[in-house]
Design a binder for these strands. Sequence first.
DNA 1: CCAGCAGCCTGTGCGC
DNA 2: TGCGCACAGGCTGCTG
Length: 276
Amino acid sequence: MPELPEVETVRLTLLEGGLQGLVITGVRVAHPDAVHWPDPQRFRLELAGRRIEGIGRRGKFLLIDVGKRTLACHLRMTGRLWLSRPEEPELSHTHVVFDLSDGRELRFRDVRRFGGFTLLEPDGSMAPDLLERLGPEPTDLTGDEFAAGCLRHTRSPVKALLLDQTFVAGLGNIYADEALHRARVHPARTCGSLSKQEQRAIRRAMRAVLRDALSHRGTTFLDFRDGSGEPGAFQEFLDVYRREGLPCRRCGAPIAKSRIAGRGTHFCPLCQPEGG
DNA sequence: CCAGCAGCCTGTGCGC
DNA sequence: TGCGCACAGGCTGCTG
């Protein structure tokens, strides 16, 4: 489940791998589901011959600048995008391969086929759907914006707010749970019940856990790999996610798991009391 | 408008 | 040992 730190790690490792400046000499689409826009035929024609000018990120979207256009990629649950030598055997579920001018390939694989590519139109007509609805990056989220989000979703659990990409862009299930544990706020607390201090604590915890995760090149349980095919290491440092029954690193109480905001949710019943 | 949930998809791991 | 099913979750779209 690539979230902001994982997508940023992919971005950085693609840059380190020298993707910038290469020309896309060919595009092979093995599974049309992975190309969300336009149709695969036009997708190939529009991208062939284009030079990769830069690689950016917005929320969980990877944004590959190919000149007049931007190729947006979302990894969703199991997507991988990495630089590969052509002689390396093709993994199953490899849906799109970009041939590059230095002889290498940029490969996209996605077991669950949730992820894929959108080629943004030069007039920006595709961007409103994808990018303009996104909330601020977690580092840019202000206290006022946090308060406004709480006001708009007073009856929702705070976990749902952190997962709402129009509120803040980049958190997923892992880092929502981790941020709330660091902030000592129960994930089922309603947004309307949060004090100013709690809002501030969540905002700080969110930034801190994302920074720490990025410094360990993301979290890998099964699927995540960076732009050079390597796993991350932050799974060793998680406090609550996937630690049901294990002792809380802060107080020793067993970590609990329940279903909140429709998601498997991990928390410490002692550090994060339901009553607040 | 807001809140909650089905559905998309496939591999994994559990119970029987 | 093998089968069936629940589960994992980002996001869209539907419903109440």
